[in-house]
Design a protein around this nucleic acid. Structure first.
Length: 938
RNA sequence: GCAGGGGUACCAAAGCUCGGCUAAAUGGGCAGGACUUAAGAUCCUGUGGUUUAGUGCCUUCGUGGGUUCGAAUCCCUCCCCCUGCACCA
């Protein structure tokens, strides 16, 4: 970090610049999703935080009273998990902490998870300060503070009263070893896998049912045999009033799904082989055959074989038919075995009778152990599901498309007692503890009723009213509100707030982060006044956040000073309603819509609803996704040391805007420091004051234009555009200006002041430094935003300077091409009649009309042949004709620049009117065009 | 699979809503030059091809078609990438 950066951070803190209190100004409330403190702030936080801070600072300079608080999230499992790993002495965890520079003693203290929270809270606070985030730290808290817990309790009590919290059951992917649901990032394998319901078909076998599980119940019409694993253990078990034959592993799974199961006998799989059972739909007898691919832990460990439509079944059948020695010893009649032939039941356009056989051959799958077998299975399944139609041998379902009949058929099978259901992960899932996950049906789980239509309706209304930065995300937000269903909001383990009416449950981590922005308003008082959790009763929150009850009564009940209560209530009335909440686009379908749902439920007053939501993409690093395995994770504290906050902020905010994913380019960060240095060297102003010249006016006009564009960009949080226009382009304009003249203190002071202000939201330290070097008292953040004057843009000055610039470039390129030092340079400014014709041509609009229209003018017509050929040129270039200025304006612009031209070409420079040129040895004058004088280099 | 968003030159990224001033802003990188004993910093120039007194032409904006006098920009097909699909922060 640079010295000036440290200096200003100290000054801001001393001045209490960010301590926000209500006043007459319009308020603007910015919030950043509190970071989870199992680590310190990372680059993603830095990006989102920079957006929040830049917008907060911008709004402040626009005259708003800005509140930007910051807190820390500690609810949930990961911190407790890390703590447990420390306690268990897990080397990896210890190593990680040691790598962060922690002493053994400190790491040991992490056996209490609260110490992890304290540690990273302090670290993150420090980093946020170093980033220059203008935060009101008096309002900071963590979600495991007992006072915060009280706030959450109040919220959930209110939601329950409204009927928005209900109890129910639901299936989750579960690790029975950890005794807890296994979330995506707790998995070694199977990310994104969810529970699906398998259909179990009841094949009668003596007094029992053999129970194959399938996702394709329609294929029951094509079963030719049954597969069991010869080496696995199977059981006969009482399930309800029935007896099922299933793998032993299935028993535990069923018990986790609220099914009453009692094992009656246990036997090896090979005892089943050769026996038969009866198809519940077709009545045919099918034999049990051995197959290695059968997974005893998968569904029921019994698989029905449909060789016509399942490549694996076909391959396994072929294997044993071709190699009878494989089933020697099972006492299977080889004649019967050979008689087994595929039964086709689905018709697929463009495929033969047996898609499984066809695809297996096409892909060249050799046998059931071939890894390509899975690919073949998926292919067939997809094709049949989307385009398949059931054939005549499927009874009443004949003629129905596969995709439509599935649900109906399943329901009817179950209703008819021919089938049952069972949950199973749709793919293999392995817990971090290496255990294989199952599906458990959780009982008495509490749900937030996001599926409730009236609640949704309010959420929709709130979404319509709020501003999205950028609006591009609206469709997705709308979709998410429609999509969201009742959501389980409690868990059994981790840290957080207990459900007030059912203390064995903890409020789950996303569910406690929905309306906490309200708590920021109170936090300042709660912590500074030493209010205890006991005092924070529901009455208290009802009063200060809901305006219910009298302050007197609540004061008596809670022991909190009445004046203080009134103060909090009035603060809440002033501040509340989040004006800008920025987060990553990944949080749309959960956090951000929950944020809306909870606000509309808790407050009837629409002013308290969210007013604005900002969204941004994901930060990549030098074009690649940041990940530990790639080793390209950029550590915030490292880059802070290396580049300092201004360069980081500039680089991050310039990286992307809108929906795009920003890319952190380290080389670019390095270059940004150069730009900042260049900017800082502009102050103090060295030049003297003088009267405004044309080039001064041009500079002022350009500045006005940039301010206007940058301001619009800031309003839309389009920081990249703001930086591009307000910094790089304006700096380039200014560079040109200083090449053209010595500078003018009036202009210089204005331009540098504007630069400082436009950049202040992005690079507050450098801007503050420049601002003070310009001789200003007080912080730039108490200064007003540069005004956009109505007549600030001087069109003629800009066009005239454009001529100077292109002329300069043109002469330069001629000199380079001829490779000789010029003695004298002549430019011929095109005559007025060409400008008249230009206007007329533009008015004509139609190429065919150009010549007749311009010839109707006498001043043009009198030019004869020259007018005709010029007319042809105009007609050809009709669509590219821009604005022109008069001959006099163009001449005087060039004349004013004579000194500049002479200096840069090292030769005499003469401006002549093309129509009255006294000297034109090369006959160039006639070629002059408006805005493009003819040039003769001698 | 479903939903939302995207594919522009060496990298990043504007432009595409209102088709022509777009061979395509801007930042980075790279190359050449100036300055310097040298390096760095700074400044200038270049950065699709070819051509030229400031120009013209050709080929380019994921792919393949279409509309149009004219398309990065409008329409259709296909391919690829990112994000989410929940009980997890």
């Amino acid at each position: 970090m640079e010295e000036y950066e440290i200096k200003w951070q100290q000054k801001w803190e001393e001045q209490k610049l960010y301590d926000a209190e209500p006043d007459d100004r319009k308020k603007f409330f910015v919030t950043f999703p509190y970071p989870y403190v199992n680590g310190s702030l990372h680059m993603g936080h830095a990006f989102t935080g920079s957006r929040c801070d830049a917008f907060a600072r911008y709004k402040r300079m626009r005259g708003c009273n800005v509140l930007f608080p910051f807190a820390f999230h500690a609810t949930g499992e990961p911190i407790v998990g890390a703590s447990k790993r420390v306690k268990a002495g897990e080397e990896k965890q210890w190593k990680q902490y040691r790598g962060e520079g922690l002493s053994n003693e400190e790491i040991k203290s992490f056996e209490d998870p609260r110490n992890i929270v304290t540690h990273y809270r302090a670290l993150s606070t420090e980093l946020a300060k170093q980033m220059g985030f203008g935060v009101d730290w008096r309002r900071s808290f963590t979600t495991i503070d007992p006072q915060y817990n009280k706030f959450i309790e109040w919220q959930y009590l209110r939601l329950k009263e409204m009927g928005y919290i209900v109890q129910g059951t639901h299936p989750v992917i579960y690790c029975s070893k950890c005794d807890s649901p296994t979330g995506d990032h707790d998995r070694l394998r199977g990310e994104g896998v969810s529970p699906v319901e398998f259909v179990l078909l009841k094949f009668r076998a003596g007094d029992s049912y053999l129970m194959p599980g399938t996702l394709r119940p329609e294929t029951v019409f094509g079963v030719t045999n049954m597969w069991v694993h010869p080496n696995a253990t199977y059981v006969k078990a009482r399930v309800g009033s029935e007896k099922w034959i299933i793998s032993k592993d299935t028993v535990e799974k069923l018990r986790n799904q609220l099914t009453d199961v009692e094992v009656l006998e246990e036997f090896p799989g090979k005892e089943l082989i050769g026996k038969t059972s009866t198809n519940p739909l077709t009545g045919s007898e099918v034999m049990n055959l051995p197959a290695a691919f059968v997974d005893p832990c998968g569904v029921t460990g019994v698989v029905m074989s449909v060789p016509a439509h399942a490549p694996l079944d076909y391959l396994a059948l072929k294997d044993i038919q071709d190699n009878p020695e494989l089933i020697a010893g099972y006492g299977i009649d080889p004649v019967l075995l050979r008689k087994i032939t595929p039964i086709s039941l689905i018709r697929v356009d463009g495929m033969g009778e047996f898609p499984a056989i066809e695809v297996s051959r096409e892909l060249g799958v050799s046998d059931q152990n071939d890894p390509k077998a899975e690919e073949a299975t998926k292919l067939v399944y997809k094709k049949e599901f989307h385009t398949g139609v059931l054939k005549d041998n499927t009874g009443k379902y004949a003629g129905m498309p596969v995709r439509d009949c599935k649900e109906k058929l399943t329901d009817e099978f179950i209703a008819g007692g021919r089938a049952d259901k069972m949950w199973e992960p749709e793919d293999f899932v392995q817990c971090r503890c290496t255990n294989r996950c199952i599906v458990k049906i959780l009982e008495n789980q509490w749900f937030l009723k996001y599926g409730d239509e009236s609640w949704k309706e309010k959420a929709r209304a709130a979404l319509k009213k709020l501003v999205l930065y950028p609006e591009d995300y609206r469709a997705q937000m709308e979709y998410s509100i429609e999509w969201v269903q009742d959501k389980a909001c409690t868990r059994k383990s981790g840290m957080g707030t207990r459900l007030p009416w059912d203390k064995e449950w903890l409020i789950e981590t996303l569910s406690d982060s929905t309306a906490y922005m309200a708590y920021y308003i109170l936090a300042k008082y709660i912590y500074s006044e030493g209010i205890s959790a006991d005092q924070l009763t529901p009455d208290f929150f009802d009063h200060v956040l809901g305006g219910n009850g009298s302050a007197e009564e609540v004061a008596v009940k809670t022991g909190i000073n009445k004046e203080l209560l009134l103060q909090m209530r009035s603060d809440f009335g002033y501040w509340y309603g989040v004006d800008f909440r920025n987060s990553g686009k990944d949080l749309i379908s959960n956090h951000l819509i929950f944020f809306i749902f909870h606000h509309v439920a808790l407050w009837d007053d629409e002013k308290k609803w969210p007013h604005g939501i900002g969204l941004n993409g994901f930060l990549t690093s030098d074009g690649e996704k940041m990940s530990k395995s790639k080793g390209n994770v950029v550590i915030l504290s490292d880059v802070l040391r290396k580049y300092g906050p201004d360069a980081i902020r500039l680089n991050l905010l310039y990286a992307a805007e809108g929906t795009a994913d920003p890319d952190w380019q380290s080389r670019q960060a390095e270059a940004m420091r150069g730009w900042i240095k260049k900017f800082m060297e502009l102050a103090p102003i060295q030049s003297a004051e003088r009267e405004l010249s044309p080039i001064d006016k041009w500079m002022l006009s350009k500045t006005q234009r940039r301010v206007s564009v940058a301001t619009d960009a800031y309003e839309a949080t389009a920081f990249r555009t703001a930086i591009s226009q307000g910094f790089f382009e304006l700096m380039n304009d200014y560079k040109w200006y200083r090449q053209r003249c010595e500078g003018n203190a009036i202009v210089d002071r204005y331009v540098v002041g504007v630069l400082a202000k436009i950049l202040a939201p992005v690079m507050p330290h450098a801007s503050e430094e420049v601002w003070s070097k310009l001789g200003n008292e007080g912080s730039i953040f108490n200064a007003s935003w540069p005004a956009v004057e109505e007549d600030g843009v001087d069109r003629v000055a800009e066009l005239a300077e454009g001529v100077v610039r292109t002329t300069s470039e043109d002469v330069q390129s001629i000199i380079e091409l001829t490779k000789s030092a010029p003695k004298r340079v002549f430019v011929y400014v095109s005559p007025e009649w060409k400008r008249v014709a230009w206007h007329l041509a533009k008015q004509a609009g139609d190429a065919k009309q150009v010549i007749p229209d311009i010839m109707a003018d006498d001043s043009v017509k009198s030019q004869g042949k020259a007018a005709a050929s010029y007319g042809q040129w105009l007609a050809k270039n009709l669509h590219v004709l821009g604005d022109v200025i008069s001959q006099e304006e163009e001449s005087s612009a060039l004349q004013n620049a004579v000194g500049f031209f002479s200096k840069s070409f090292g030769s005499e420079f003469v401006v002549l009117p093309a129509d009255k040129a006294e000297y034109d040895p090369a006959g160039k004058a006639g070629k002059a065009l408006p805005m493009k004088p003819a040039i003769y280099v001698e």
